[in-house]
Every structure is written in structure tokens, then in C-alpha cells.
Simulated assay, not measured.
Amino acid sequence: MNVTDAAYDTVHEYPGGSESLAPRMSKGMSAATLRAKVNPNTDRNLLSLQEADELMGKAGDYRILHALAAAHGFVLQRVDAPDSGSMIGALLTAAAGHGDLSQVIAEALADGKVTPNEADEIGRVCAQVQAAIAQVGQHADAAAERGGV
């Protein structure tokens, strides 16, 4: 999905569409203006970066962000800030994830070929491992802010 389609879908698939989403925007945007900004058939009155950011936050829909990342060869994985646990616990979770990834890859390679479903599973587990590793870093940042472990 491209960024333009993602913006259009974000607005039009929001419950109540532009009529209920536009008034929530900080600039008091009209529903017609919001529809025009995400209309893929026009190059006038486009959505700004700030408006796209606000739109994603208000709608709770991040397909614009994912489409932008995909257009540049990236994938995104939400990583929630640590609210409990420890850095060691996060490290152990990440290590277990590496083991899970190794298992999934071994199973995929067992017959000498990787199917599309196996590739999807490998990608899903890779994303989980990346998120777990990011949690270790977030625990380290939190510890540094606290001035201790």
C-alpha cells in the first residue's frame, strides 16, 4: 500500500469517516478539507507531515507510517516502554526469542526449501526478537534515568 492510499483509508475507514475525525484535528479542519487532503486524485491541498502525524494519533491507525517505512525498505514493530521487569529479564526474553527463531529457521530448512508461509513465520519471529532486544535497550535507558538498576 502506498502512502496516499494509506492516508485515504485511514480517514475513510475511521468510524464516522471524515465527519467525525476532522473535528478532532487541532486546527479545526472541516470534513471536506480533510477528505480533499487525502484524495488520491488531486495534488492540491495535501496532508502535511504534522497533519499526518496528528491524524495517525487521533485515529489510532498507523498504516501511513507503515506505508512510508515500506516505501523506503523498512518495517516497523511497536515496542512498548518497559513498565515492569528488569533488564536481565528482558535480556533472557530476547535470548529465548533467538532460540525460537533458530527453531523456526531449522524447521523451514528441513526439507531444503522455504515456503511463503515459512518465510512469513520467520519474518514474524524476527520482528518479535527485534522488539525483545529493543526492550533491553529501553530497560537500560530507564535504569540510567533512575541512576541505578
Score class of each variant (00 low, 15 high):
residue 145 E to G: 11
residue 107 E to S: 09
residue 42 T to G: 05
residue 121 E to D: 15
residue 95 A to W: 02
residue 110 A to I: 00
residue 47 L to T: 02
residue 40 P to Q: 02
residue 125 V to T: 10
residue 94 A to N: 03
residue 55 L to D: 01
residue 20 S to W: 00
residue 63 R to T: 09
residue 45 N to R: 10
residue 122 I to Y: 03
residue 80 D to R: 11
residue 126 C to F: 11
residue 39 N to T: 02
residue 109 L to M: 15
residue 117 N to M: 10
residue 97 G to W: 09
residue 25 M to T: 05
residue 121 E to Q: 14
residue 79 V to F: 04
residue 58 K to T: 14
residue 73 G to V: 09
residue 124 R to P: 02
residue 2 N to F: 02
residue 120 D to F: 10
residue 83 D to K: 11
residue 113 K to W: 05
residue 10 T to C: 14
residue 61 D to H: 04
residue 36 A to I: 00
residue 74 F to N: 04
residue 135 Q to R: 06
residue 55 L to M: 04
residue 56 M to A: 14
residue 131 A to G: 13
residue 37 K to H: 04
residue 11 V to T: 03
residue 129 V to A: 12
residue 29 M to G: 00
residue 147 G to C: 07
residue 129 V to E: 14
residue 75 V to G: 11
residue 62 Y to T: 11
residue 78 R to L: 08
residue 54 E to K: 05
residue 28 G to N: 09
residue 118 E to A: 09
residue 50 Q to M: 06
residue 6 A to I: 02
residue 77 Q to V: 15
residue 117 N to Y: 02
residue 143 A to R: 03
residue 126 C to G: 00
residue 1 M to T: 07
residue 59 A to P: 05
residue 30 S to I: 06
residue 26 S to N: 11
residue 119 A to Y: 03
residue 97 G to A: 06
residue 36 A to Q: 12
residue 144 A to D: 10
residue 77 Q to D: 13
residue 101 L to R: 04
residue 139 H to V: 02
residue 105 I to S: 11
residue 148 G to V: 10
residue 103 Q to G: 01
residue 48 S to N: 02
residue 111 D to G: 04
residue 119 A to Q: 14
residue 28 G to E: 05
residue 63 R to A: 06
residue 99 G to N: 07
residue 13 E to R: 13
residue 14 Y to I: 01
residue 46 L to C: 06
